[in-house]
Amino acid sequence: MSIARRGRSLGVSGFLLAGAVGIISSTQTWLTVERADAGAAILVPGADALQLLAPLSLAVLALGAALSIAGRIVRLVFAVVAAATAVLLGWSMIPLLVSPPLSAVAPSITDTTGLAGSAALSDVVASITPTFWPFLALAAWVLLFATAVLVLLTWRQWKTGGRRYRTEGVAADHGDGAVDAVDSWDELSRGTDPTR
């Protein structure tokens, strides 16, 4: 089976996997702060290091779930939104991986030490080291971007849903005979007023 024919299943799987990794990593330690005052190291979870991580990961999960039943144009919109989300999250993570800024750990340090202000926090911090979780999350965003591109390339070849999901062009033809209660109910289900 070609990739174009498997586009829907690969798209849904890729979106769900990336979103799940994002959600799981948001609860894990992303940055370890070694203290200059010989205190215990401060562990900063992903949701604190990157504020957008948890909500956007949930959005990606929702996109993955909705992609499985989305119509033609909606697939295209979902793919564009997913690609933009992957770029935004990936770009936001680069400073955390290269040289984590003090602002990413400041709330956690303040909660632990009670100190505030960049000068006081700088005196407490000896080093900030990323763990493997942000690297794993970055890999998830690369996967999300690649999956979004795959959806953009294959969305036209996906099979559409069955007839039961479509309402346009469906009209009951009863001829000149009487309409019973079941036929009336079916017409209501289709959006047609049986009393006309």
Score class of each variant (00 low, 15 high):
residue 4 A to Q: 09
residue 97 L to K: 10
residue 14 G to C: 01
residue 94 I to K: 00
residue 35 R to A: 01
residue 159 K to T: 10
residue 168 E to L: 07
residue 78 F to P: 00
residue 84 A to H: 02
residue 63 L to D: 05
residue 142 V to A: 02
residue 100 P to R: 00
residue 151 V to T: 13
residue 182 V to E: 13
residue 124 V to F: 03
residue 100 P to V: 08
residue 31 L to I: 01
residue 97 L to I: 09
residue 27 T to Q: 09
residue 80 V to F: 14
residue 145 F to M: 05
residue 12 V to W: 06
residue 143 L to E: 01
residue 194 P to R: 11
residue 96 L to N: 07
residue 156 R to K: 13
residue 143 L to N: 02
residue 157 Q to T: 14
residue 21 V to K: 00
residue 121 L to P: 06
residue 21 V to D: 03
residue 150 L to E: 00
residue 175 G to R: 10
residue 175 G to M: 09
residue 98 V to G: 04
residue 133 W to E: 03
residue 18 A to C: 03
residue 193 D to W: 02
residue 106 A to L: 06
residue 149 V to T: 03
residue 37 D to P: 14
residue 123 D to N: 09
residue 191 G to S: 04
residue 26 S to L: 04
residue 50 L to Q: 10
residue 118 S to E: 05
residue 134 P to T: 08
residue 88 L to N: 02
residue 73 I to P: 06
residue 1 M to P: 01
residue 90 G to V: 04
residue 135 F to Y: 15
residue 172 A to L: 15
residue 86 A to M: 00
residue 115 L to A: 11
residue 125 V to Q: 00
residue 88 L to I: 00
residue 153 L to F: 14
residue 58 L to F: 15
residue 131 T to E: 11
residue 73 I to C: 08
residue 179 V to G: 04
residue 181 A to S: 14
residue 165 Y to N: 02
residue 191 G to W: 06
residue 108 S to T: 12
residue 124 V to Q: 11
residue 35 R to I: 00
residue 16 L to K: 07
residue 136 L to M: 13
residue 1 M to E: 07
residue 189 S to M: 12
residue 56 L to V: 10
residue 33 V to F: 08
residue 47 A to Q: 13
residue 140 A to C: 05
residue 1 M to K: 07
residue 81 V to I: 14
residue 148 A to E: 04
residue 83 A to H: 14
residue 99 S to V: 05
residue 60 V to E: 07
residue 7 G to A: 07
residue 3 I to F: 10
residue 65 A to K: 12
residue 73 I to Y: 12
residue 35 R to D: 06
residue 118 S to N: 00
residue 109 I to A: 01
residue 77 V to L: 08
residue 83 A to S: 14
residue 145 F to Y: 02
residue 65 A to L: 14
residue 68 S to T: 12
residue 146 A to R: 03
residue 131 T to Y: 07
residue 41 A to H: 02
residue 52 L to H: 13
residue 102 L to M: 08
residue 67 L to R: 07
residue 124 V to C: 02
residue 167 T to D: 15
residue 93 M to S: 08
residue 157 Q to V: 10
residue 195 T to M: 09
residue 88 L to V: 00
residue 29 T to V: 13
residue 190 R to P: 00
residue 156 R to T: 14
residue 80 V to G: 10
residue 195 T to V: 05
residue 31 L to P: 01
residue 172 A to W: 13
residue 117 G to M: 09
residue 79 A to Q: 15
residue 36 A to Q: 08
residue 166 R to S: 15
residue 61 L to H: 06
residue 169 G to K: 15
residue 131 T to F: 06
residue 9 S to H: 09
residue 50 L to E: 04
residue 126 A to M: 03
residue 185 W to E: 11
residue 189 S to T: 12
residue 100 P to T: 07
residue 29 T to H: 08
residue 91 W to H: 05
residue 27 T to I: 12
residue 112 T to R: 13
residue 125 V to E: 00
residue 65 A to H: 12
residue 190 R to N: 10
residue 10 L to H: 02
residue 132 F to C: 08
residue 149 V to D: 01
residue 166 R to E: 10
residue 15 F to P: 05
residue 65 A to M: 10
residue 187 E to C: 14
residue 54 A to C: 02
residue 74 V to M: 14
residue 176 D to P: 03
residue 177 G to N: 09
residue 175 G to S: 11
residue 60 V to W: 07
residue 32 T to H: 00
residue 161 G to I: 08
residue 4 A to R: 09
residue 102 L to K: 13
residue 185 W to I: 01
residue 133 W to Y: 09
residue 160 T to K: 07
residue 96 L to G: 08
residue 18 A to M: 06
